[in-house]
Design a protein around this nucleic acid. Structure first.
Length: 587
RNA sequence: GCCCCUGUAGCUCAAUUGGAUAGAGCGACGGACUUCUAAUCCGUAGGUUGGGGGUUCGAGUCCUCCCGGGGGCGCCA
């Protein structure tokens, strides 16, 4: 149990003994550290329920809490804030308890859920670009958070490999190279070597997409090719397989560079054999209906304040769309994977689409009410000029290039600071990679995900300020102390009652970790973890500045401080890990 | 036109979901190193939270009306 839940329970009992709801006892870290360490605001809420003055209630609760030997001071301030300060002995006792716990006081959930995290969403025929960056980074962090809480996590990148964009490519390639065996209805064998490279596809796709917007005849051919592929044309399937392979090769490299992994490598195509059946059953059940030549599900609800377009299951030409595969994927995740919660970490611009899919999934009985479907939306990554991040020529920036950029920037920073100079080249390169990825991920995750944010390479890769490298540096300094202590045979001991303000501050910060993680999970908001990690590093740096650990002559105190350093490092590394950031051993 | 998001210090962003005196980082200015890695730490300045009205003991947060920015709106993903 965490300290804060313990304090909340104590305050809750006091409220309960007054005939009030125990939930009012929630204790949180104080917003006025100069007044107290913790506070409870329940008395002011209680006043309405009880018809008593908030101060009277607060006084009674504070009096009850005062009897605890753990509490040094419980008093009432302002309209009814209950302020609490613990004894240093109690702090030390809780510090030892939290630090000895491999979950740092967080515990694990009683009833684990199966959580599918759908993130990254790379498309066939495209190398990943900056648009995939946020989804990948945020999704990965959320997956790590839910896993740490004890849930069963299923990470799925959900490749975009089955829709109209496939038909577009097929039609364009056929026009360019009509002699390829993939388009020959009599062919039975196809080359093992891909006729196109990823670079080819990247050139072909935008042109084909643009042309389809103006050229109705071409667009129709692409739609037909989509239908042929989806209905099993062997030539198109063979060509499709090649396109998928060249795309995935590049995407796997990017994921590896980011240190991101998936449990499944599914895509839209992996549900292709459910599509027909699903659509038929929806038709039979009266959920789907014909409209303007297409097959749709109407998803309007009585209390809507706007018109909703229907979800389209089947195009006029008979092809399935991403709405269809998304719906079938919900079915697969519920029926086969046993999902209790599905998180879709996808760009904010698709919020209408997900609202449609979720409504259709409920209406069609595909997702029962106890399965939660959530769109975890996020904003755009902009340049410092406030406009969407583009290349100098105005093109899309590829993810691989971004990764190279941050690694180079990290390397330059290391050089400029004469850091890691004495290490060999391979280690320096690895440090630069870790620092670059940290700069990139932290720069993203520190922001509230729902708003747009500015990608500023210089700022992100700085070792100063609220950055990934600053946090790595703080952790490395702790590692360095612990390594030196080890060399000198100094051992960490039992944490004793803190005697310095910075020491107390660090312990208080560390003790609030469980609630921060819980909030981050509840809100699906990694920025709370990032912000807390920065605060924690700051508290440690202040402690580090004031209390010189290794030269401390009092053995017990030195042992206590070493234990505090060990606990801080474990917490910091865990927090960074939850953000997908690794800490080098030295730098 | 309709719907969603958004507006907080010079800049980039937070704010425990309605709590006390709105906080960080950068930048600016002023301090602290015979260092446990100073890429650190301390301090100062900087705000009518876009504007008006309302609800509340209490509003950056909720309601309402304006103003500005972004996004989405049937067979792309």
């Amino acid at each position: 149990m965490s300290l804060l839940s313990h304090l909340s329970a104590m305050a809750g009992e006091a409220f309960a003994s007054l005939g009030l709801p125990a939930e009012l006892g929630e204790v949180v870290p104080s917003q006025r550290p100069e007044l107290a360490q913790y506070q409870c605001n329940g008395a002011m809420t209680a006043a309405k329920l009880a018809g008593k003055s908030p101060r009277d209630i607060a006084e009674e609760v504070a009096t009850a809490l005062s009897s605890s030997t753990e509490i040094a001071l419980a008093d009432v301030a302002g309209p009814g804030f209950i302020n609490l300060t613990l004894t240093d002995e109690a702090l030390a006792s809780w510090a030892n308890r939290h630090s000895a716990d491999d979950h740092l006081g967080f515990g694990t959930v009683e009833r684990p859920m199966s959580v599918v995290v759908d993130y990254a969403g790379p498309n066939v025929a495209k190398a990943m670009h900056v648009g995939h960056l946020r989804a990948t980074i945020i999704g990965d962090s959320l997956a790590r958070l839910f896993a740490f809480a004890g849930h069963k996590i299923i990470r799925d990148p959900h490749f975009g490999d089955w829709g109209f964009q496939m038909g577009l490519l097929m039609a364009a390639i056929q026009e360019r190279s009509p002699g390829l065996p993939y388009f020959d209805p009599d062919a039975t064998e196809y080359p093992t070597r891909s006729p196109v490279t990823l670079q080819d596809l990247q050139q072909i796709y935008p042109k084909a997409a643009e042309r389809a917007r103006q050229d109705e005849e071409f667009s129709e051919r692409a739609r037909e090719a989509t239908v042929r592929l989806q209905s099993g044309d062997p030539g198109l399937r063979a060509l499709w397989k090649h396109m998928k392979t060249v795309s995935e090769d590049s995407q796997r490299q990017d994921f590896a560079a980011l240190g991101v992994n998936f449990d499944l490598w599914y895509g839209e195509s992996d549900v292709h054999d459910r599509l027909q059946t699903l659509v038929e059953s929806l038709e039979k059940g009266g959920v789907a209906e014909e409209s303007q030549g297409a097959l749709v599900v109407r998803i309007d609800q009585a209390d809507d304040n706007r018109d909703w377009p229907p979800l389209i299951l089947k195009s006029r030409a008979g092809g399935f769309l991403y709405s269809t595969t998304d719906l079938a994927t919900v079915q697969m995740r519920v029926d086969d994977l046993g999902a209790d919660l599905i998180l879709y970490v996808v760009d904010r611009r698709q919020s209408d689409h997900f609202a449609q899919v979720f409504r259709a999934a409920r209406k069609g009985g595909i997702a029962p009410e106890n399965v939660r479907l959530e769109h975890i939306e996020f904003g755009t990554m902009n340049s410092p000029d406030g406009k969407p991040f583009k290349t100098r020529e105005g093109g899309v920036v590829q993810l691989g290039d971004v990764i190279d950029m941050v690694q180079e920037a990290a390397r330059a920073r290391l050089d400029e600071a004469h850091l890691a100079e004495e290490y060999d080249e391979a280690e320096r390169e690895e440090i630069a990679r870790l620092v670059g990825v940290a700069a990139l991920k932290f720069g993203d995750l520190i922001n509230n995900r729902s708003s747009d944010y500015v990608f500023d390479l210089d700022r992100f890769s700085s070792f100063e300020g609220k950055t990934g490298p600053y946090l790595q540096y703080a952790a490395v300094r702790i590692k360095s102390i612990l390594a030196k202590a080890d060399e000198r045979g100094l051992e960490a001991g039992h944490m004793r009652a803190p005697a310095h303000e910075t020491e107390r501050g660090l312990i208080l910060e560390l003790l609030s970790l469980p609630e921060v993680l819980q909030r981050a999970i509840d809100l699906r908001a990694p920025n709370h973890v990032a912000d807390y990690a920065h605060n924690l590093a700051g508290q440690f740096n202040r402690f580090y500045d004031e209390c010189h650990i290794l030269s401390e002559q009092d053995t017990l105190r030195r042992g206590s401080w070493l234990a505090l350093a060990v606990w801080t490092l474990a917490s910091l590394e865990r927090l960074l890990d939850l953000l997908g950031i690794a800490v080098p051993d030295r730098m």
